[in-house]
């Protein structure tokens, strides 16, 4: 197991590559999820306000 994380001395290079890839891939999923939630909330707020006036 230790040998696996050691990556034959290249641990820093291999794991930093995979870590950066993970962060970028996750961000591309999370950002549109957050945008959609915010957008729908804003549209709903505006629709309610429009009905009151």
């Amino acid at each position: 197991m230790n040998e696996f994380f050691h990556m034959g001395g290249y641990a820093f290079y291999v794991w930093s590559s995979y870590a950066i890839a993970l962060v970028v891939l996750l961000l591309n999923v999370l950002v549109p999820m957050r945008n959609r939630r915010r957008l729908l909330a804003a549209i709903a707020r505006r629709a309610r306000r429009a009905r009151r006036t």
Binding site: P32, N35, R36, L39, L40, A41, I43, A44, R46, A47, R48
Partner: peptide
Amino acid sequence: RCELLERERNTLWVSELAESK
């Protein structure tokens, strides 16, 4: 989907969708 919601924000189906959430 986000981009479409933003472009169609003034349509009925989008405001219905937003309010049903």
